[in-house]
């Protein structure tokens, strides 16, 4: 599904990541942890083709990403849902339009995904905020809207970068429950976070693999988590 083999990434002359090998199997759940600046976001970007490795191979759904054109990467990305800490909404569109953006961008008629959209907004508890614009949402509502946008295309993989970074404990647990629910539906989930309490909470609900980035290298986290 997503496979990184002996990947290195350098920026500004310095090696940020090196000798990274990672395989995300279908239906698996992963946490990626490490201190701020360790390279979690960079690794996530390599996983969805936003960055190309300076060394090694990244394979997305059987396609070598270095051989893909930009538009081909866009097509591959439709099979993935990405959630950012800052959500990245288009502020001039309503919440429902933002959530439906992947459908619009893939050229599907607005009516085609209407049922999915209604269902999804109810699932994340944002039906009553459908016509609001993103600046009117609270932190938790933004993250839930971002999650809804990430899964509206029914992707095989969900990649989340610090999805609970800007929300309180209660909301982070709610988001976690949604991500766990997605995994139980068969989606592969990779969450980058430095919130160890979130990881501990998840491990009580689901079989999760925890990876840690330290000194630019990836390692399996110990039992202390």
């Amino acid at each position: 599904m997503i496979e990184l083999e002996n990947v290195a990434y350098s920026y500004g002359g310095g090696a940020l990541l090196s000798e990274i090998s990672l395989k995300l199997a279908p239906g698996s759940f992963h946490f990626l942890t490490g201190p701020s600046g360790a390279g979690k976001t960079t690794l996530l970007k390599l996983c969805y083709g936003a960055l190309l490795p300076t060394h090694g191979d990244v394979t997305l759904f059987g396609e070598d990403v270095s051989r893909l054109e930009r538009d081909d990467i866009a097509l591959v990305r439709r099979r993935m849902g990405v959630v950012h800490q800052d959500c990245r909404f288009l502020d001039h569109l309503t919440v429902s339009e933002n959530i439906a953006l992947p459908l619009t961008a893939s050229g599907r008629p607005a009516s085609a995904g209407q049922d999915d959209l209604t269902e999804l907004m109810a699932w994340v508890g944002l039906t009553h905020r459908a016509d609001a614009v993103p600046p009117e949402l609270s932190g938790g509502e933004r993250q839930r809207a971002a999650l809804a946008r990430a899964v509206i295309m029914s992707p095989d993989v969900v990649l989340a970068d610090e999805p609970t970074g800007n929300v309180d404990w209660e909301m982070s647990q709610r988001l976690l429950r949604l991500l766990v629910e997605l995994n139980k539906m068969g989606k592969t989930v990779l969450i980058a976070t430095h919130d160890l309490s979130l990881i501990r909470a998840a491990k009580s609900q689901i079989q999760a693999r925890v990876l840690r980035i330290a000194n630019g290298r990836l390692q399996l986290a110990g039992a202390d988590l």
Partner: peptide, 15 residues
């Protein structure tokens, strides 16, 4: 920024 978001959600350059 709009272009970055569109790319993030799978929009092609053509779109």
């Amino acid at each position: 920024q709009v272009i970055a978001v569109l790319r993030l959600v799978g929009a092609t350059d053509r779109y």
